[in-house]
Every structure is written in structure tokens, then in C-alpha cells.
Design a protein around this nucleic acid. Structure first.
Lengths: 254, 254
DNA sequence: CGCCTGGTTGAGAATCATCAACATCTGTGG
DNA sequence: CCACAGATGTTGATGATTCTCAACCAGGCG
């Protein structure tokens, strides 16, 4: 049994969210998750179609590759990783999702999920049935538009990752990932300099197209150079500006 | 002046399309471009909002990064590359688009295009104004759904590229690209074994996260091993099956 | 004709992967 | 509460792939 005190850590915000989450109207993540310029009455209609599920435990699947697509999912608390299995059986991590972010939009296309989604830690989720959403969108132009936006944001995100994988050294990839998580924490009013990485080194390596050894070595190198302090998954970014430099100073390809 | 005979080459299909393209109803690409189960009357409504533009010349921009987003574009003939400029001024090619494919969906999110799109050769385009499309979607559920599908397909495509960049050797990347273009040619009823690559080695290298030297060396290696015959941009895939093997045999990472 | 762009080829260097040993953490059962 | 096993992470030595630099070739155009 963990002491109750645990609730008062930096995860405080999310922990509270977990309880308060009666509906979309007073969801603390509202502005992040579906920050639509919806009239109050419209939020209510959205709220009606959203289903809250019981929390996933670490390692539980939210959905699996080839499952029939019915819903997209908003992360309330915790963290999700998405991944594919390649033809030759290897895992490819394609993304990490934090509270306020939407998972599962790749499934809209073919009616099945193109990859799997798995909880990295205890995670609570709002399920948004897509059929109903489609109908609702039909009536609420702003909701439809917003959904288009979310999807194209995902395209943009993926393209950033493509650039990262295509052009950057191992050092830059890791610096970029840390900065990305930092920025996403800031959005949720959490610290942008001290946080816990919910994913394993293996997941980081896989996501960034590196080996765990390289990731490990770079964490220690960053620590040696005073860029970060890291105690396993707990991490402190000691110098955001210098980290930004590291992330962007490119070896001069092409 | 090119001799009229030119029209009878393997680009025949597309060349014809260029003329016949009075409207969406008898577009030969129809089933590829917006293969919707639309009633005839509905295609007519779609047709009404589509604008045909005059052809782009090689090097012309279809749109540029940060241009206000108003439309998505269907490629009728020719080829388009999309690219970003990174913070430090380098180009990152994010995709190649062939006839029947839709460009510009990354712009939907923030109201501006997230990258630029440029013609690799003489290219004709159908412009699909997005505002009108939004309204039309509102009335035609199947069109809205289809558009969601197109976008999530793009997400899926991007994720394949992510996997490619993250997990594959230079050899596999190039084999995969060739196979991708081959398959897309097949979709258009062109040869899947002999075609002209519309993009430069530089673009290929950039797209695949390699250097031009590596790309060049691998083309010659492939030729030496009887996988392909290549005369500059003209290419013949001599052994599709073996090429598929090369593309998928992974070094065993993670 | 010479210039310029784009492509090919070679030799050496650098980054990152691989293999291997070891350390640390977590959870389970005694 | 401790001991142990398995998973996860760290560190070191070596090697392969791919980059870098450089020379050279081919085709298009003024």
C-alpha cells in the first residue's frame, strides 16, 4: 500500500482529474482534449456520447491492431504508447500519448486500428464512439472542423517525427523527445523541467530508432554535461536552452 | 515541339486524362481519387466545387509553407513532392504524390499549410476548396466519412515511413520506395516494373534519410545483383519478389 | 566551348549497433 | 523482512554501416 501522501506529489493535478471527471463540462483537461468553441449546450451533447471506462493497468491494451474501429479515445490520466508489429514480428513504437491527447485516429481509415495501444502505467480513458461523433459532427460544424484539425495535427506530428528520424543524430533525437514531453507537460500546467518518464528505455529507443544502449549512454552523457539529472525514470531538465541547442544543431546533411 | 507520338508512350493513360478531364463524372482516376460510393447526383455536387487549375511546370509551387489553407489538391497527372524547411534551414522531403492522390491535408489543422508542395515535372491539379467541402460533407455523410478515411490513410502512410526510417537499412529503404512506387503505378494500371522516377536522387536521399552517395551506390549495387536495371531516372524492376525480400529482411534490432 | 547541375565512384572517418559483462530494480515467496 | 529470479538499465570493447570529402563523369544550356 502506498501512503496517501502519494496523491500530493506533482501528479496532483491528474489525480484530482481522475475523481472529478463526472463529465466534459467540468473536465480540467477540457481545453486540451477537445478545445472546441462549443456552446455550453453543445458540450452537453458531446458529453452524452462520451463513455468513461474503468482505468487500464500497466500493460493492458486499449485496443489491438486489426480490432474493429469504433471509437477514438481521450487520455484522462496516465500514459499510452501506440505501436505496430512489422511484417517480421518486430515492434515499432509510433507514439506516446499523455492526458488531454486523442488516441486511435489512425483507425478511421479502414475501419480497423492500424496499430495497437497499450497503457504504460495506470491510465484512465474517455471513449468517444465514432459513429455518434460522425452524426454529431454533422450537426455541429465546429466539432467536425475540430476533428479534422486533430487529425491533421497528428499528420503534422508524424511528419516532425519523420524529420527527426531522417535528419538527426541520436543526441538530437533524445533531446527532442525530452523537449516534446516537457512542452506537453507545460500545457497541462505541470512542471516542464522535472517529471517522470512513463516509458521504458526500450520504448524510447524503439520510438527514436536507436538501441537501448545508445539511449542509456546518451542519458549519462547529458547528465555528465549538466543538461539533465536523471534517476532512472525521474528526470530533471537542468538547462532547457542548452537542450534546445543540442536538439537543433544539425550535422549538415544534404 | 514534341511529336504527337509522345502521347502514345506509357504515360498514355495520364496524358489522356489531361484532356478528358471535363469533370469528376468521367475522370479516369475517379475511383482512385475520391472513390466514394456516391450517388450520381452527389458526384455532380462534388464536381461543382472542384476547380481545375492550369498545369504546374517543374519546380512550380502548388502551395508554400504557412500559406493560408483553403483547399486540398488532387493530382491529375505528373508528380508532386511535399517538404518542410527545418529550423536550421534544411529541406526535409515528406512525401511524393502521384495521380489520384490527395495533397495538402496537413493544412487542415492550423489553417495554414505545414509544409510546401512543389511539382517534380509538369503536373495538373484539381483544387478542392475545403470550406465548400466542409459544407458538402455536412450534407453527404459518405463524403465526410471518406475524407476522414483519406486523412487517416495519410496517418497510416506516415507511420509506415516512420517505421522504415526507424528500423531499416539503406538497402531496405530504397527497395521499399521502389516497391511503393511500383504498387501505386499498378493502381493506375501502369506498368509496375518499368517506370520513370520523377524525383532526383537528392530528393530520394532526403526522403529516405540517406545521402545521395549512398542512394547512388545502392542503385548500382541493385543493378549489379540483377534486381533492377536503371538508366538514370528510367528504371526497370527485374525481380519484384527478390526486391520484396530485400525490403523486408530486417537486421534484428531490439 | 565551357560552365553548371546532377550523378557516380573511391578512400577514410564517425556514429551507432552488437556482443558481453555487470549493476540495479521489482516483485514473489519463503 | 529477507533472499532470489527475472526484467531493466548501465558500461565497455569491437565492428559494420553509412557519412564525409574529394575526384571525376555526363548531359543541358548559354
Amino acid at each position: 500500500m502506498k501512503p496517501v501522501l502519494k496523491v500530493m506529489t506533482k501528479e496532483h493535478t491528474d489525480s484530482c482529474a481522475r475523481q472529478q471527471f463526472a463529465d466534459c463540462r467540468n473536465c480540467r483537461l477540457g481545453a486540451l482534449c477537445l478545445p472546441i468553441a462549443l456552446a455550453t449546450a453543445d458540450v452537453e451533447r458531446l458529453d452524452n456520447i462520451v463513455e468513461r471506462k474503468r482505468p487500464l493497468q500497466r500493460g493492458d491494451h486499449l485496443y489491438r491492431e486489426d480490432d474493429t474501429f469504433r471509437s477514438v479515445y481521450a487520455v484522462r490520466s496516465g500514459a499510452i504508447k501506440t505501436y505496430h508489429i512489422t511484417d517480421d514480428g518486430q515492434e515499432q513504437v509510433t507514439g506516446f500519448f499523455f492526458p488531454g491527447e486523442i488516441v486511435g485516429m489512425d483507425g478511421i481509415g479502414c475501419g480497423r486500428f492500424g496499430g495497437s495501444a497499450k497503457a504504460l502505467e495506470t491510465t484512465s480513458i474517455c471513449e468517444i464512439p465514432f459513429e455518434s461523433l460522425g452524426e454529431l459532427s454533422m450537426q455541429l460544424p465546429s466539432l467536425q472542423k475540430h476533428f479534422f484539425q486533430l487529425m491533421s495535427q497528428e499528420i503534422t506530428e508524424d511528419q516532425k517525427l519523420i524529420t527527426l528520424l531522417s535528419k538527426s543524430s541520436a543526441e538530437q533525437r533524445i533531446a527532442s523527445l525530452l523537449l516534446s514531453i516537457s512542452a506537453r507537460n507545460a500545457r497541462r500546467n505541470l512542471s516542464d523541467t522535472r517529471f517522470r518518464l512513463p516509458m521504458s528505455r526500450t520504448d524510447i529507443a524503439n520510438y527514436l530508432g536507436l538501441t537501448i544502449e545508445t539511449v542509456s549512454r546518451l542519458f549519462t552523457r547529458f547528465a555528465r554535461n549538466g543538461l539533465v539529472t536523471s534517476d532512472n525514470k525521474e528526470i530533471i531538465l537542468e538547462d532547457l536552452n542548452r537542450l534546445r541547442q543540442v536538439a537543433s544543431v544539425n550535422r549538415n546533411r544534404v
